[in-house]
Design a protein around this nucleic acid. Sequence first.
DNA 1: AATGTCTCCAACCGCGCTTAG
DNA 2: CCTAAGCGCGGTTGGAGACAT
Length: 262
Amino acid sequence: MGRQPCCDKLGVKKGPWTAEEDKKLINFILTNGQCCWRAVPKLAGLRRCGKSCRLRWTNYLRPDLKRGLLSETEEQLVIDLHARLGNRWSKIAARLPGRTDNEIKNHWNTHIKKKLIKMGIDPVTHEPLNKEAKTEESSSHAHHSADNHTTENDGIANSSEDNSSSPTENCSTTDDPNLLDAICNDESLLNSLWMDEPPLVDVSWTSISAGESNCNLTSLPSWEEDCAWLLDYQDFGTNDFGFDYLDDIELNTLEMGDKSVA
DNA sequence: AATGTCTCCAACCGCGCTTAG
DNA sequence: CCTAAGCGCGGTTGGAGACAT
């Protein structure tokens, strides 16, 4: 007597989303907020499974998403966090407002990985590749599973701190070096990452969209008026849409820690 | 201009944990 | 307490566009 299936495979569309589907999903979420994803397709009139809707929303349609390439600072932060956390993309993404785990994961695999290899750094262990080759035999395989945090962390935490003077830094133009340092050196913050507490979640948007706050969304054009703005927003930052207040909320959340995640 | 290859990223898949019933 | 769906996560894939020949 579990729950109902999330979708009845038959008649469920897959593949790229159309503008029309995006429109329906956005309109629905803006109107009703994020409730149970299972119900979303039906209520929004979409022939998609709830999971697909959730993914589309979180990875692409959320208004607070930044689009475009990661800045040097963001990239450096990703490298640093990856050295400590491994492939825990969602945890890493939680430290980069407006970025999704999928986006960071993609960027890692397509850009950062190659960059590190080019620099002679093993993207998995964050150790120099030469050294890696030597120690490969003596040490057990480079594992970045959750079980190995301590071992990996011990070795890497130091090396990543050295990053400030490492070759990596050469390409870092310090958009906001203080932010990077603050995050990387904040032990309590890192500890919270190790724990399973969600230290930072995008409550700002969820609460807004849930109708908890009417905020600025009320001033946004509706689909009935003009549906083009949301399809266009993908090319802009959040500021372009009056969502810049989200950053403040997010920073507060970061400091206070988030406990009201559903 | 045509064709082949590479790169990138949106979306899917499957697994593990959580939680409703 | 048990079962099975919901949910979130990380790994992987496929197709579109960019680039090379």
